[in-house]
Write a protein that binds this DNA or RNA. Structure first.
Lengths: 191, 191, 191, 191
DNA sequence: AATGAATGAGCGTTCATTCAT
DNA sequence: TATGAATGAACGCTCATTCAT
């Protein structure tokens, strides 16, 4: 009964993700996105009322997916296992932190957007609490140093995956090293 | 005899720095800069052919200054002292990494720009090598774990200062904790 | 056997009228009209080639209806009765003049439209002549001042109903006053 | 020291006036205006922050000029003379009423605009009061019929000059007839 | 007959950049 | 050296219009 769409939501969200990471919020334009999808700029407005809305929807889509996986951290009882699971997860979603930062740049002008933003904040909070919960479990088990602020630990772990791997170190080695730094730092023990 | 310039390079670069950090690359405009300097937009074109060039020049200026200080790391013989000096330095230039990231967003369109970009890459390399030298000294002294890639160590240290301090942890405590994570990780020793 | 239309011409023209009066020619959009009719925008194109055409058709429909009533003016023999009938009629179609003005804004781009426009002008002429006929009858009966141009009299009567009633004078009083001005002017007789 | 302007404010306001009358508020575009002035659209933004502002400024300019002349109505003592002066004035500014109506369409979004709007409302009020004063003087002198609402008299006089002169009746005759209708209506006295 | 998908022209607006003085 | 005037490309967005089902 009707023409077939030239692009799926997945296509669009994937392109959005790449462009956002490459150009940031300001640098992201409908022109860029439309070009990448092979459609006209105006076509995008059929699905998203405006730029903010598009990015908000994308953020929710992305965070939703991430949260589904993050919540599975509670399938593990021991902190060590949770830690392994978390790092594995972050490895596969290395830019989640960066995306969230970009999301903070979205100006919230109207009611409709405000609702989306609140929903997004909710997801954000979920994630944060999930991670703080994990940190506290670690401290409770005596595994994490108690005097380091929770927020620093959380931020640090997220940030770790943003270190650019210029020298193209093989992935597994890179991750192993990150894990080790997080666990035991960079310094040897004989100090 | 000749009219005096209404603004110095220092003024200009300082304003540029603040604006870049506040608004990002896309948000940075000649209008903002001119306004802050109290001159007309077109006046800026006497000194910088275009926006990219201006930012490139600024980057070089900034990196140059930073490198002058970074090179002083060699005034110290012991790795531990170098480490302390480096962290102190980074603490006072927390945005150096961020600025470099912004610099990466500058599109390189023409030859002239390409030359500047290469020059900047050169400085970048200097900095990188200086830091890698420091890392190797640390490894040589048996202080740094030898199996962690040099580039990861360098990147990690730089990145550390970008973890956002949302919870407003006092600065000295925050820095101490960062140092400790870098040195000895987040985990306790009883493992 | 065939699918039934989801909206009648009457529905459509009524909606068009309201929207035109509310939003003017520029503010009138297919989107608004489609929404009010509960159909898709593209459905409208089955019946009207384009926006201008639609408005033209509407104008003709509207003028036709009005003319049917206006022609009844000839049911009356005496000018006075015709005058009363006319004012009554205009009172009940106060926007007819306004709609005609809006109609003038429609750009006539192509041949097909030009034909419609000519047809509309024809109707317009009918109306005009009908009114001029009325005026001449008035002059023939010695009721209307012979030296005032026919077209001014016609235009004036039509225009009278467009004076905005900002002060919310009650309708009957307003109309009575208009009638009086038309008949005997604003000035008292003692001059 | 600087390039010469390609158009004066007078040029611009004149073009604005014509376009507003031809196309209405919605139909008026920067593209149209720029084209008529022979400059680029963006050049206009040097002088007017946005469309609303431009139209507001124009309105004030236009009303200011009109008010300067309207105020001179008080140079005359007798109502009859005032009446003659007023009609003469309106003849030379036939669209003033129409322009004000268009002015009402301008959406007032921000503070700066609100101020301009208030100023405009002030001018508007001046004009209205000036005219109502004139009407009351006429009633006081027993020249105007006391039972016709002031606002209708004012509106009617303003509206009179909007009757389109399709038949191209010579100007002086047209005006004389309008005057007569206003004074003594369309009807002869023998009724 | 009717639909949702898509396009393209145009709008208001911003901004880097060039021009003429 | 510095300026205000002007341009043109691009942006976010709207809407009449066409397409394919």
């Amino acid at each position: 009964m009707v023409r077939e769409r030239k692009f799926s939501d997945e296509d669009l969200f994937l392109a959005t993700k790449e462009l956002l990471l490459d150009y940031g919020y300001e640098g992201f334009t409908f022109g860029l996105l439309a070009e990448r999808l092979g459609v006209s700029r105006s076509a995008l407005y059929k699905y998203f009322g405006n730029k903010e809305e598009l990015i908000m929807e994308f953020m929710m889509y992305e965070l939703d997916q991430f949260m589904d996986k993050l919540r599975k951290i509670n399938d593990y009882n021991r902190f060590e296992d949770q830690f392994d699971y978390l790092l594995e997860l972050l490895m596969n979603h290395p830019q989640i932190h960066q995306l969230i930062e970009i999301g903070r740049h979205v100006p919230v002008n109207n009611q409709k957007l405000k609702e989306k933003n609140d929903k997004l904040d909710g997801l954000h909070l979920d994630m944060y609490q999930s991670l703080v919960g994990f940190v506290q479990q670690g401290k409770g088990e005596g595994k994490l140093k108690p005097h380091i602020p929770d927020t620093l630990i959380v931020g640090y772990i997220l940030q770790s995956f943003l270190v650019p791997n210029f020298a193209q170190i093989p992935h597994s080695e890179w991750v192993q090293s990150i894990k080790e730094i997080i666990r035991n730092g960079m310094f040897t023990d004989d100090h």
